[in-house]
Design a protein around this nucleic acid. Structure first.
Lengths: 291, 291
DNA sequence: TCATTCATGTGAGAAATAATAACAGATGGC
DNA sequence: GCCATCTGTTATTATTTCTCACATGAATGA
């Protein structure tokens, strides 16, 4: 058992080592980002704790006494060891890849398009992506996850990026076959849906003043990514978050003639590994600007 | 230049090392004389500073993570070095003799008689005595000095032991030759005095309602010790602090038929070397009981 | 010599940090 | 299931540390 309780004030000792290194209380204070008074006081405290005078005046400055020399020579390497050890730990943490979990559709249609600017802005951030099925909870071993969450509660570890906006979408080819003159077109068609978001169509219908019961539900898919493939293949009208199909709209593969409505869900980053919080917040801040 | 400012909270690190050593937060808290909550919090802070988790739950207790192991193995020797270095310094300070300066008369007639009980009560206190002439300021290199001081001001570094009481004294042999029936005897005799305390006789006279001018001043001596030798030799009446001649009175060598009066002076211990303050205060506390 | 500059020392009050007490949650033994 | 043990968390209190402002003492240069 080490006699940790017989240690003097370690902050005072740190101040002393700084003074010994700089040969001056004022310089040490500058190095430690405090006033010279604070350092002077700390030295006094340490001297009292050790019952020894460590510094003596010399001209306008100070110099170490013999006891001070001895203390410095013993403690300086110890502090260096500690500083290096901690620095090493931080370094290792920096080099460890940040594991981000998200669904396949979010990965393919939201995150991957943002990767180039991301890697450009944070070239030293090693990012490792893992997918979880849309209906699974984000995996435990990930440092952070990206997902749509209903009514996210305020929480330091939950960072909302943008509100979900959903709407019906269909392939451009399919649209040309149909007579799209109003909302009325919707009920007549087979509505593709996902098992992970069964409320998507009813929610959207309510938002648009359409009785949910009047909808003709068509094929269901296990995940959004399959549904979107089906929509692209012209199998019917799907419903999807605007965020995930923006590129398809811009490139004319899909159409969204009925627009989008905001839901209670938000696209959120969830922090799982608190020790990576700083890096995650840096990453998230950047993602927010890219949204 | 060492990166002292990149060090984490050293108290948190100390707490962590304690936890690593004990393998338990509660035990570490006990060792550090704080509650487990305090230690738990410190560990959390350290983990945040290092962006690393250091502990993980294991059953009801905790165990170190790999990062924690690494940190502990690096820092534990550093803390041991620091603790040992400080302990060594304290030890050296303990073994260094305490240098006490006082006048020859105080040394011979006040301090030396008290040395046996002193050494019995504090056998491990190495005491080195140096004399300074009565009229010199206590020497700078002494850790403390013992002297009579006029009107001592309240000060942490000045410890009054007892008020000075002075009075005329003469050798028993001389007293037998004289007719000592009252204060009236005084003016008729040659009054021995010291150059270091020229006011002693006038002060005493005023306290006793005798006109100072009516005194017959005799031989002067450079220091009290010589004066006392002269008094013992029957050369005349001297004036001296009661404290310094108590033994002579008790053993019948000297008489003080006119009694003693208190003066404004106190026998004081003055602390010169603040770093020895604790030991000096222990010594002084003991001296006060022996007075 | 005297003002000036530079470095340290000191005190009161403000700011930051750490500790406590009390409770919550989790685990393992009975 | 119940109890004892250990860790985590929070609001509050206590302590430490810092700052600011001024004082002191030593070298510097007119």
């Amino acid at each position: 058992m080490n006699d940790l309780h017989r240690l003097p004030s370690l902050n005072a000792l740190k101040a002393f080592v700084a003074v010994a290194e700089q040969g001056s209380i004022s310089m040490a204070a500058q190095q430690l980002h405090v006033t010279h008074g604070a350092v002077s006081r700390q030295i006094k405290l340490l001297e009292e704790e050790l019952n020894t005078s460590l510094l003596e005046k010399q001209g306008r400055g100070i110099k170490l006494t013999d006891a001070g020399q001895q203390l410095y020579q013993n403690c300086q390497p110890a502090f260096r060891t500690i500083a290096e050890s901690c620095q090493q730990l931080r370094q290792q943490q920096q080099e460890k890849p940040l594991v981000l979990a998200c669904s396949g559709s979010l990965l393919a249609r939201w995150l991957i398009p943002r990767l180039p600017p991301l890697q450009q802005a944070l070239p030293d951030l090693p990012l490792q992506l893992v997918t979880s099925a849309d209906d699974e909870r984000p995996q435990q071993q990930a440092d952070l996850s990206l997902s749509f969450m209903n009514n996210p509660v305020a929480d330091e570890l939950l960072i909302p990026l943008e509100q979900e906006r959903i709407g019906p979408v269909l392939a451009t080819a399919l649209a040309q076959q149909l007579d799209l003159d109003s909302n009325k077109a919707i009920p007549q068609l087979p509505l593709l849906h996902t098992l992970s978001r069964p409320q998507a169509w009813p929610d959207w219908a309510r938002h648009n003043g359409i009785p949910p019961d009047s909808l003709h539900m068509g094929q269901g898919f296990p995940h959004l990514s399959y549904l979107l493939e089906a929509v692209l293949a012209g199998l019917g009208i799907g419903i999807a978050p605007e965020q995930l199909i923006r590129a398809d709209l811009e490139q004319g593969r899909l159409l969204a003639p009925w627009g989008f409505v905001s839901t209670d869900a938000w696209l959120c980053v969830q922090i799982h590994n608190i020790s990576q919080r700083q890096r995650i917040e840096k990453l998230t801040g950047l993602l927010a600007t890219l949204s």
